[in-house]
Simulated scan of single mutants.
Amino acid sequence: MTKTTSVAAPVLGVRALNRATLDRQLLLRRSALSAAEAVRRLVGLQAQNVKPPYYALAARLDGFVPQQLSTLMADREVVRIVSMRSTIHTHTADDCLSLRPFVQPARDRELIHFRKGLAGVDLDRLAVLARDLVESEPRTMAQLREALHAVWPEADPASLAVAARCRLPLVQVTPRGLWGRSGQVALTTAEHWLGRPAEPAPAADDVVLRYLAAFGPASVKDMQTWAGLTRLCEVFERLRPRLLVFRDEQGVELFDLPDAPRPDPETPAPPRFLPEFDNLLLSHADRTRVIPPGQWGRSWQGNQAHRTLLVDGFLAGVWKPGPDALVVEPFTDLTRAQRADVLAEGERMLAVLHPGESPDIRFGRVRAADE
Results as ranks from 00 to 15, higher is better:
Asp95Ile: 02
Leu17Glu: 01
Arg262Asp: 10
Ala163Phe: 07
Ala142Arg: 13
Asn303Tyr: 03
Leu28Phe: 05
Pro66Asn: 12
Pro265Met: 07
Gln104Cys: 04
Gly356Arg: 06
Glu37Cys: 04
Val252Glu: 14
Pro292Phe: 00
Val252Pro: 00
Asp360Arg: 14
Leu133Arg: 12
Ser136Tyr: 02
Gly117Asn: 08
Phe273Thr: 09
Val245Ile: 14
Lys221Arg: 14
Thr230Arg: 15
Lys51Ala: 14
Gln46Tyr: 01
Val78Pro: 01
Cys166Tyr: 05
Cys166Met: 15
Leu350Thr: 11
Asp360Ser: 12
Thr21His: 10
Ala201Ser: 14
Val171Asp: 02
Lys221Thr: 15
Leu281Phe: 07
Val82Phe: 04
Phe64Lys: 06
Pro200His: 06
Pro175His: 03
Asp286Arg: 01
Thr188Ile: 10
Leu334Pro: 04
Leu26Met: 14
Leu309Arg: 07
Leu280Gln: 09
Gly216Leu: 00
Ser283Lys: 06
Pro153Lys: 09
Pro275Gln: 12
Leu334Phe: 04
Tyr54Ile: 03
Gln46Met: 07
Phe215Asn: 00
Gly117Tyr: 02
Asp259Gly: 01
Thr288Phe: 00
Ser86Asp: 13
Val290Gln: 10
Ala155Asn: 08
Ile88His: 02
Thr174Tyr: 01
Ala20Tyr: 05
Ser31Met: 11
Arg196Asn: 09
Ala285Asp: 08
Leu12Glu: 12
Asp23His: 10
Asn303Gln: 14
Ala325Asn: 09
Pro217Val: 11
Gln295Ile: 03
Phe114Ala: 15
Gln46Lys: 12
Ile291Gln: 09
Leu118Phe: 06
Trp319Gln: 02
Val171Pro: 01
Ala20Asn: 11
Met141Trp: 01
Ala161Thr: 05
Leu187Glu: 13
Glu347Pro: 00
Thr332Trp: 00
Val43Lys: 00
Gln250Val: 05
Gln304Cys: 04
His91Leu: 15
Tyr54Ser: 04
Val14Arg: 15
Pro157Leu: 12
Leu17Ile: 01
Ala158Phe: 07
Val103Arg: 08
Ala269Met: 09
His284Val: 02
Gln184Cys: 04
Ala155Glu: 04
Arg247His: 11
Val245Pro: 00
Arg19Asn: 10
Arg107Ala: 15
Phe273Ser: 11
